[in-house]
């Protein structure tokens, strides 16, 4: 049975249609990539799924429950966690305390929350950062803290919005390994967006492509990137011809 079922979801801001009739499924334990150029509507779709925006039309079912009308915090409690593309490192919570906030979703006890937070920091190989302020850490570490905080809510599905943005190549590889472990060792399904393709390609079982708010392709990663529509969306018409010529030759 599908873990997440998105049916003809549309989201309009005033006159602007950021998502238009998007449908897809995500199975238990699957890694699904959501790609598309900047402004395609990926973040908006995440916000709709996670309950931060009400959808204009459509239906979202998570784990057998219709979550379309639910608020973000209720969605989170059902086991759907997310990270944010724009992640401000401010405030007066230390790293470990940040992760504890996530853990507090499932327990009222500080002792337990702290224990779980430490375990997650350990799992993400940043155990030594616990007593720092978030703003004192480099970006790659901050992203891991955000990941740890989301994971501490013990989700079934994790939505990752551009976790690789702003990272250098070595850090991206580290992140790929980490996400693979999260998926394999913890059995958490992942839905990840990226406008840099390399990470999505490495991890995803299937890929969905958005452009201008619409779904233009879906399938195996290798097949999808050969789709002329996708190439056009990413690189413009010019490259479609070139790619066509290349495959003819």
């Amino acid at each position: 049975m599908a873990l997440l079922e998105v049916t003809e979801v549309s989201k309009e801001f005033g006159g602007l249609t950021a998502n238009q009739d998007i449908s897809f499924c995500l199975d238990q334990g699957e890694v699904l990539g959501l790609i598309g150029p900047n402004g395609a509507g990926k973040t908006t779709l995440f916000n709709c799924i996670a309950g931060h925006f009400p959808v204009t039309r459509g239906k979202i079912v998570f784990d057998g429950r219709d979550i379309t009308p639910l608020k973000a915090f209720d969605v989170a409690r059902l086991g759907l966690a997310r990270t944010f593309q724009i992640f401000q490192a401010s405030g007066d919570l230390k790293v470990a305390e940040n992760v504890m906030v996530g853990a507090f979703m499932r327990t009222g006890s500080r002792r337990q929350a702290r224990g779980r937070a430490e375990a997650w920091l350990d799992f993400l190989e940043i155990a030594e950062t616990g007593q720092y302020m978030l703003s004192e850490l480099p970006v790659a570490r901050q992203k891991r803290v955000a990941l740890a905080t989301a994971l501490a809510t013990e989700p079934k599905l994790l939505l990752l919005d551009e976790v690789a943005a702003g990272l250098i190549r070595a850090e991206i590889e580290g992140m790929v390994t980490l996400l693979r472990r999260i998926h394999q060792e913890k059995g958490i399904a992942l839905l990840l967006t990226e406008h840099v393709l390399e990470m999505v390609m490495a991890l995803s079982h299937r890929v969905i492509v958005l452009e201008s708010g619409r779904k233009i392709a879906e399938g195996e990663p290798q097949a999808v990137v050969k789709d002329p529509e996708v190439i056009r969306a990413y690189l413009g018409d010019h490259f479609v011809k070139r790619a066509g010529e290349a495959s003819h030759a």
């Binding site: 931060h52 401010s90 405030g91 919570l93």
Partner: peptide, 13 residues
């Protein structure tokens, strides 16, 4: 106080 949207995504009403 830090960020209300993030807080909501962590199950906080």
């Amino acid at each position: 106080k830090d960020n209300e949207d993030v807080a909501r995504s962590l199950g906080i009403d």
